[in-house]
């Protein structure tokens, strides 16, 4: 077996070790490369910035805990921006596995930073089965779909809901998703009720949403952790996503290096075999 063939069959544990090291190094030596802002994130930020103060905004936690490394920074930075503008935040989720708990954890943490009060400045509606029915039903009455909040308090007892009855009272939807529910928000809530919205999606989903940005159905897009990092920069509060950029940078560069190495090995191996045949 030639050197090139051996290289093609490198033990995968070496690759795992390299990835592990690439993840750890930025924790010890942060590089903090500047993060440039893409137009999709800039328009998203501008749309939220342009909302009148104390607007009611839906911050939707349509993601599972598995993708929280990418999506939670989006939700955190969104909540920070909205609270900074004194907007009232209504959180909900179409994900049974953890969505409402993630909403609870994120808003609790960010609300404490801004001294916001539950029930007055923000509320967690929780989860209800059947996203199509839920999204359509809230167009008529939010209370008919969510008679109580996530902890069982009737909405009628929460001051934040006094002036929020349906989508007519919602100024913006800030959707954070790692699955297809974002499509339904766009096709039902934006197309059906003309509620402006922006989407924060995992990097693997983000390419799809460029079509909706292009069509003007969403005002902007946060694509993966990079999108969240760009938003953090615009908000002037670099945090988890910005720190994650160093790790993601090194791992991306490692993968590119491995792909190049793999291809060099492939072509050299082919040439070596041809040489043997001649």
């Amino acid at each position: 077996m030639s050197f090139w063939d051996q290289m093609q069959q490198m033990d995968r544990r070496w690759i795992y070790l390299m990835v592990g090291i690439a993840v750890i190094i930025p924790f010890i030596v942060p590089a903090k490369f500047p993060v440039s802002v893409t137009p999709e994130v800039q328009t998203f930020f501008d749309a939220v910035e342009a909302l009148p103060d104390s607007s009611a905004v839906m911050l939707v936690f349509d993601y599972y805990p598995s993708t929280m490394a990418e999506t939670t920074p989006m939700a955190v930075v969104g909540a920070r921006h909205l609270f900074r503008k004194d907007c009232r935040i209504i959180t909900l989720s179409n994900i049974p596995l953890g969505g409402p708990s993630l909403a609870e954890a994120v808003t609790r943490e960010v609300a404490a930073e801004y001294g916001k009060v539950y029930g007055v400045d923000y509320v967690n509606l929780g989860y209800k089965y059947g996203y199509v029915s839920v999204l359509k039903g809230m167009g008529l009455s939010i209370e008919s779909i969510f008679p109580t909040d996530n902890s069982g308090t009737p909405l009628s007892e929460l001051p934040i809901m006094d002036s929020v009855k349906n989508y007519e009272d919602i100024a913006f939807v800030f959707e954070v998703a790692d699955n297809a529910t974002a499509d339904y928000w766009i096709s039902i809530v934006n197309a059906g009720y003309s509620v402006p919205m922006g989407v924060g999606a995992t990097a693997v989903m983000a390419p799809k949403f460029y079509a909706f940005v292009g069509a003007g159905q969403i005002v902007g897009l946060l694509g993966g952790m990079k999108g969240a990092a760009e938003y953090e920069i615009l908000l002037g509060q670099p945090d988890a996503a910005f720190r994650g950029m160093d790790i993601q940078s090194l791992v991306h560069l490692l993968i590119i290096g491995l792909v190049v190495l793999g291809n060099v090995g492939y072509f050299m191996g082919r040439q070596h075999k041809r040489g043997l045949k001649l």
């Binding site: 490369f33 950029m245 993601q248 940078s249 090194l250 991306h252 993968i255």
Partner: peptide
């Protein structure tokens, strides 16, 4: 490869 480079600050 180009998109992967573009999507991270070091690559950019």
């Amino acid at each position: 490869t180009l998109v992967m480079l573009w999507r991270v600050p070091m690559g950019e």
